[in-house]
Computed example of a mutant assay.
Amino acid sequence: MRAISAFMNGVTKVNEWVGRILAYLVIPIFVFILIEVFLRYLFNAPTVWTNELTQMLFGLYAVLSGGYILAHRGHVNVDIFHATLPRRVQATVDIFTSVLFFIFVMAFGWFGYEMAKESIATWETSYSAWNPPIWPIKLAIPIGAGLLLLQGIVKLIQDIAIALGVKCPNADETGEAGDTL
């Protein structure tokens, strides 16, 4: 049980760390958009790089933050009925629906890996006027899928413990990652 708890804590800590680092990407995204707006509308001198760079940074933000969001139960749910159920029943439903989650994440990881492998092999660039390398962004896709998969395993373990009525040291009564991290 100690090894499982250590695994759960380790995965959640990694996703917590990644999520907190990624949160700071909002600042340069905001700054680059402001630069573009000022240059374009005040000086009539648009840039060729700000739009593409903000899209790339947001792409990193989106694909790498999935594990952090899952650890905090922040993904969108249809909670009309689910939220009204007792916590143990919610956990049981989540166990059965986790099959769909794992199919999605495995496909996301597989296709992301194939895309990243091909992109790295050719040192792919965007082919725009600015032409930055985009293989690092594509490499982030399978990494993000891996982080999400690991956090999904942690959530599944938490749900199994809650459904069985076993105290799970890594989750509070809502199932969210607890203060043991």
Rank of each mutant, 00 (worst) to 15 (best):
Ile4Arg: 08
Ala6Lys: 12
Phe7Ser: 02
Val11Phe: 04
Lys13His: 08
Val14Ala: 10
Asn15Cys: 11
Glu16Gln: 12
Glu16Phe: 10
Trp17Tyr: 14
Leu22Asn: 09
Ala23Gly: 15
Val26His: 04
Ile27Ser: 12
Pro28Trp: 09
Phe30Cys: 15
Val31Asp: 03
Leu34Asp: 04
Phe38Cys: 12
Leu42Gln: 06
Asn44Ile: 06
Thr47Ile: 06
Asn51Glu: 09
Glu52Met: 06
Phe58Tyr: 14
Tyr61Leu: 15
Tyr61Met: 13
Ala62Lys: 00
Leu64Asp: 02
Gly66Cys: 10
Tyr68Met: 02
Ala71Met: 15
Arg73Met: 13
Val76Trp: 13
Val78Phe: 13
His82Arg: 07
Leu85Ser: 03
Pro86His: 11
Pro86Gly: 12
Arg88Pro: 01
Val89Leu: 12
Thr92Leu: 13
Val93Glu: 05
Phe96Ser: 03
Val99Cys: 02
Leu100Ile: 15
Phe102Gln: 05
Phe104Tyr: 14
Val105Cys: 01
Val105Glu: 06
Val105Leu: 14
Met106Pro: 00
Phe108Cys: 06
Gly109His: 04
Glu114Cys: 04
Met115Ile: 09
Met115Tyr: 11
Ser119Trp: 07
Ala121Arg: 11
Thr122Leu: 13
Thr122Met: 10
Thr125Tyr: 04
Tyr127Leu: 13
Ser128Tyr: 05
Pro133Met: 13
Ile134Asn: 06
Pro136Gly: 06
Leu139Val: 14
Ala140Asn: 03
Ala145Arg: 03
Ala145Ser: 10
Leu148Thr: 10
Leu150Asp: 04
Gln151Gly: 06
Ile153Asp: 06
Ile157Leu: 15
Ala163Tyr: 04
Lys167Thr: 14
Cys168Leu: 01
Pro169Leu: 12
Ala171Phe: 08
Gly175His: 08
